[in-house]
Design a protein around this nucleic acid. Structure first.
Length: 487
RNA sequence: GGUCCUGUGGCCGAGUGGCUAGGCUCAGCUCUGCAAAAGCUGCUACAGCGGUUCGAAUCCGCUCGGGACCUCCA
């Protein structure tokens, strides 16, 4: 296996990836909180990690990919009052909290499928792991890094920082973190400003609550990921991923919880995907500048000029490195849509490409370049650049401007299959095969008539047929072998 | 206010101390009855000012612009 390098947030360096027990790899990614529709920023993270997962599998690793569903305990702010997001939404919509969870979980899965994301190996829910979370909190208290106030359990950050380093993931010292000039409001219970809740006391009217050694309540936001990742991947595992916005708070606290429990750093490689922006500003729930995946597909949103296919959007995302911000604009989206079509078209051409006896191209070298790109921190933009080189070779060979052997063609087919479809997870847009078959016959009938007109040099008629087909959305391609069409 | 990231040609976006990524757009050419498609060619950029270096878009400093985190968010 060739060495794979990835950027590790923990060390702020590109490092060679060395799993704990090859070929096994443990991968944990923070999943969605299912109290509303997923928005596009979440999708970018999940699409990026889907690509990473696919590549790890492609190069031979046996990956256990865990992505959680947060369906409880996620408070608005770290206050020890009020309901969690699900209960709030449930009261608003006059339904059971678990109805909210169910509705948006199903919606989330639909979107993941539309983007052709593979399902994770395990998709655990927070509500399904209350016991594990309670056990972990008990352990943290036993180790002396948490305290209880009126049925709420807090993590003692300053005490923890004496033995370990709290801000290591963001490269910050505790004193710096404490220096923030934020007002201390409604936080009288907590000993330290940075302390966060592990378990939150709940009043009887709270809809979602569970019994615990500290009374009825519900878990804090950060504990679920620590409890579930260690349950399914072990106390120390290979890769933990998520959006960059989780780095400073959520992931920092995850490390603290696990380390307080086991006295071991839980994760060897932390990977963070960058944010999605719209007109230069981060797309976020609170900013309200986002659109939903569904709106993106249909184009039904003021910011969108038209609808964009899920695969076009996925390709667009792949053209930017996962670690860079990605700005959404109609212009950029349409540009990459065209590029994607051209790449797919060249794949069609490849299927009927005729082999020559000599070769003028080094296809094996091109294939190696594709691996080099991916091995360098999953550099899909570079990979795509090489794939367009492959497309150029295919098209040129098809025009008899260069020659490739059967061996080359087989390698090219492998390149497309492995990198375009298997690793980047792109696929050709679904067509209704039955309808398409009929349509194909009809259009070929029309093209036959047009060809007769052309032979008779009745160009006004042949052009009229072509123009009308174009108006109907059918593009005609004339070649020496005859005419073909596409939508 | 604190911490950090970033500024690339018409647009989007990679990237390494020296060998012009790629896509889209635009112009020209080849092919074609004309187009389209495809191929070829051209448009050759790295915010500004200093510094290090034989050589910097790539390293350092300053200035200006954009953004993120510190508060729920992937």
């Amino acid at each position: 296996m060739q060495p794979l390098f990835l950027y590790n947030t923990l060390t702020r360096k590109k490092e060679e990836f060395k799993p704990i027990k090859p070929p096994l790899v443990g991968l944990y990614v923070c999943g969605p909180t299912v109290y509303s529709d997923v928005h596009l920023g979440n999708c970018r993270t999940f699409i990026s990690f889907d690509m990473i997962y696919r590549y790890l599998v492609h190069i031979g690793y046996k990956v256990r990919y865990v992505r959680n569903i947060t369906d409880a305990g996620h408070l608005e702010g770290d206050r020890d009052e009020g309901d969690d997001k699900f209960a709030k939404k449930a009261k608003l919509e006059q339904v059971e909290p678990m109805e909210i969870v169910q509705k948006y979980t199903v919606g989330f899965h639909d979107v993941m499928q539309a983007f052709n994301n593979l399902p994770p190996s395990i998709e655990p829910t927070a509500t399904g792991h209350i016991c594990e979370q309670i056990e972990m909190i008990k352990e943290i208290i036993a180790k002396g890094f948490a305290y209880v106030v009126d049925g709420t359990v807090y993590f003692d950050v300053e005490k923890y920082n004496k033995d370990f380093s709290y801000g290591q993931l963001t490269n910050r010292k505790l004193e710096e973190l404490l220096e923030g000039t934020r007002e201390l409001s409604g936080q009288d219970e907590k000993r330290g400003r940075l302390d966060f809740a592990l378990w939150i006391n709940a009043k009887p009217e709270t809809l979602m609550r569970w019994p615990s050694p500290w009374g009825w309540g519900f878990p804090g936001w950060h504990i679920e990921c620590s409890a579930m990742s260690s349950k399914y991947l072990g106390d120390v595992f290979d890769i933990h991923g998520g959006g960059m916005d989780l780095q400073a708070t959520h992931h920092t606290n995850e490390i603290a919880q696990s380390q307080a429990c086991n006295h071991k750093a839980p994760v060897n490689y932390w990977m963070h995907t960058n944010m999605l922006t719209v007109n230069g500003a981060r797309m976020s729930k609170s900013a309200g500048n986002g659109f939903l995946p569904g709106e993106l597909f249909t184009g039904d949103h003021p910011l969108l000029e038209k609808g964009y296919s899920p695969m076009g959007v996925r390709f667009f995302m792949m053209q930017t490195h996962y670690h860079s911000t990605l700005d959404f604009s109609n212009e950029a989206l349409q540009a990459s849509e065209k590029g994607f079509e051209r790449l797919m078209e060249s794949h069609n051409t490849l299927q009927t490409l005729k082999a020559g006896t000599t070769s003028s191209e080094d296809i094996k070298a091109l294939q190696q370049k594709c691996y080099d790109a991916m091995n360098d921190d999953f550099n899909t933009p570079i990979l795509i650049a090489h794939l367009f080189e492959a497309a150029r070779i295919v098209n040129s060979a098809n025009d008899n401007k260069l020659t490739v052997t059967q061996n080359d063609i087989d390698t090219l087919k492998n390149i497309y299959q492995h990198f375009v479809f298997d690793v980047m997870g792109l696929k050709k847009e679904e067509e209704n095969s039955k309808t398409t078959a009929v349509l194909d016959k009809v259009i070929h009938m029309v093209l036959d008539i047009r060809n007769k007109a052309k032979v008779e040099k009745n160009f006004p008629l042949s052009d009229e047929i072509r123009n009308k087909l174009t108006d109907a959305g059918v593009q005609i391609k004339d070649t020496k072998e005859g005419s073909s069409w596409k939508i």
